[in-house]
Amino acid sequence: MAFFKDINLSATTAGFVAVLVGFTSSVAIVFQAAQALHATPEQLTSWMWALGLGMGLCTLLPSLWLRQPVMIAWSTPGAAVVATAAVAGGFSMPEAIGAFMASGALIALCGITGLFERVMGRIPVAIAAALLAGVLARFGLNGFAAAQSALPLVLLMLATYLLARRWLPRFAVVLTLLVAIAFVAARGEFTGAGIVFSLAKPVLVVPSFTWAAMVSMALPLFVVTMASQNLPGVAAIRAAGYQMPISKLITITGLATLVLAPFGAFALCLSSITAAICMGPEAHTDKAKRYTAAAACGIFYVLIGLFGAAITGVLTAFPRELIAAIAGLALLGTIGGALSTALHDPQHREAATITFLVTLSGVVIAGVGSAFWGVVAGAIALFVQQYRRSIV
């Protein structure tokens, strides 16, 4: 099989780092969403099973099929919406499951009709690149901000990364991660108390469809997932120079959510942060073989699904400063490339800068995140500038 010939250590490491960053940076929000719905420990494990298998298979199979790095994640802002709506509306688990399924159906409908892809096709490359840079820059900032609480670790990781980029650029992220793990292990900073080895078991919850849950949870979950996750996800794909069947991928995530929702998969979507890790040159020097990094990521996600409790304990045992720093360093190249693309054309430079700054600000308006408002602000700026030039 070509996959085994194409994959290498850097691609495998990129897949692992993507899982490490994507999972540990937001799993607490998923836990909060489940707890807000009064989930039992068995149901919480089922959520990890459904999300792990959903993300894993929707990443692995399309990547192997298209031979391109397709990256699927759970909707982190969607989890926040679920947690907030559950507390405010007092919804039960069956009502939430019904809302998950309704949101998944709407996402699939957007993919089947091709509406979302047509909208994305009208966004200039500079605006899309600025959007991606704004989404990723926050992780870059957090990586260096981690020095406030773990200065020796961050300095060691930065020094290792820079030296490796000079002498062994293909293995810069690999070596940085290994040195960081050895450092925190030597200092006894791993917290392994939560590691329990057991197979995850799915727990079926029969959905209940109520008007209140549709309005207060399903619609916000759909809007936030499309605007704050799928939008920058497409931007990441375009910035990396890949041509993928976006509508089909959106359809797959919607249908997978619909099928796995009764077991706890609240929203699957295109990824942007972890996608940037697996689509960049650090994953593989050959762009045509970077699909192996995404496939490796998919395999790791499947393992999370099968061994939910154990893998959750292992990944959350890493210090948060290590996670923040490795994410920031792994994304440096992609952030720089996105900014270069965004600011290259003088005609689009100011609109792209506005998009970047609004996205980076993290502003939330009407429950919709800054990624959406960054595109809106950039599009308005671009329209005003072009319209004014056309009549002068």
Rank of each mutant, 00 (worst) to 15 (best):
A342Q: 06
E282M: 12
I273P: 01
G298T: 12
I365P: 00
S361M: 11
L322A: 12
Y301N: 10
K287N: 09
I326N: 05
I273R: 12
A324C: 07
Y291F: 08
A317M: 01
A342E: 08
G362I: 06
R320Y: 09
G328R: 02
A325Q: 02
G362Y: 09
A330D: 01
L270M: 15
C297H: 09
G308V: 04
P281R: 11
A327E: 03
Y301R: 09
L331Y: 08
G298R: 11
A296C: 12
I273L: 13
L322D: 04
L343D: 03
L360A: 15
F318N: 06
L329M: 06
K287M: 13
P346L: 13
T292P: 08
C297S: 10
A325T: 14
A296H: 08
T334I: 14
T316F: 02
T359E: 12
L306R: 05
A296M: 11
S361F: 14
L315F: 08
L332D: 06
Q347P: 00
A293S: 09
P319F: 01
S340K: 15
L306E: 03
A276N: 05
S272K: 12
A293E: 01
I354K: 14
L357W: 15
V358N: 11
A327I: 00
T312W: 06
L329H: 03
A288I: 00
L357F: 15
D345G: 01
C297A: 08
I311N: 03
F318H: 06
L360H: 13
I273M: 14
A324S: 14
A295W: 05
H284G: 06
C278Q: 12
L268F: 09
T292Y: 05
Q347T: 08
L360P: 03
L331D: 04
T285E: 15
H284V: 07
F300G: 03
A317Y: 02
F356L: 15
I273V: 15
S361A: 13
L268G: 03
Y291E: 05
A330Q: 05
T334R: 08
A293G: 02
P346G: 07
T316L: 11
I323Q: 06
K289P: 04
I354W: 14
F318M: 11
G305S: 03
A338S: 14
V358C: 12
G362Q: 13
